[in-house]
Write a protein that binds this DNA or RNA. Structure first.
Length: 202
DNA sequence: GAGTAGATCCTCT
DNA sequence: GAGGATCTACTCA
């Protein structure tokens, strides 16, 4: 296998939307409690920092929670939503520019058994990792991992040689951001065409 | 198979 | 003290 860790230069470019598109097909590997599990990214969503009203750090709002997004690219930003779901983000751009890419869905590769166990599932179904809340649960990612390096021992992002053709990538507008004016029209959500592990289209 | 309501708790005002 | 980048189960057809 031709696996290579993604470089810091990859994350630290100013083109967050481009990074979100290129993350499709890359592989997330977690090593939690000595057990390894991994999944291929099939759906992402870009958050363009201070100029993006849908982003937590809009207008450079700075709190304990968003502090992680101000790190330079290459770190994990994990936060809790609705009290029960952990959402896994990849921090991009340079230090003090709070851009991030939300990973919305992955296709399981290794550690199927441990993922099913974490999700209390007996069968292998696409819904195991199709959705931002459930994929982090399946991979064992929690709020404790916010600020972790993406080249570190616990969480790694690798290029394992999966090629995604441009014609297989669907870009669509994000939902629920009508108020954001022109930003609402930007196609910042990326998915792999016809992949059963993407979350259902809205 | 599709649509809707409720769960549940951390974070910011 | 209100709300949120969601998921699941239950209802109805």
């Amino acid at each position: 296998m031709n696996a290579s860790l993604l470089s810091m230069e990859f994350y630290r470019r100013p083109d967050t939307a481009g990074i979100a598109r290129e993350l499709l097909g890359k592989v997330i590997i977690t090593d939690i409690g000595g057990i390894q599990s991994s999944g291929r990214i099939v759906e992402t969503e870009a958050y363009l920092g201070a100029g993006d009203r849908a982003c937590h750090a809009y207008n450079y709002r700075r709190t304990n929670r968003t502090e992680t997004m101000y790190l330079p690219g290459g770190y994990a930003y994990v936060y809790m939503c609705y009290g029960i779901h952990h959402l896994f983000n990849v921090v991009t751009h340079v230090e003090n520019e709070p851009h991030a890419v939300l990973v919305r869905a992955v296709e399981p590769l290794e550690g199927l058994e441990i993922m099913m166990k974490r999700r209390d599932k007996l069968k292998f179904l696409p819904s195991l990792t199709a959705g931002p809340g459930v994929l982090s649960k399946a991979l064992g990612i929690s709020r404790d991992h916010s600020g972790q390096s993406l080249s570190g021992p616990v969480i790694r992002l690798e290029d394992q040689g999966f090629e995604i053709k441009p014609s297989e990538i669907i870009a669509s507008p994000r939902v629920g951001v009508d108020y954001a004016g022109e930003d609402a029209l930007l196609p910042l959500r990326f998915r792999i065409k016809d992949n059963p592990f993407t979350s259902p289209a809205r």
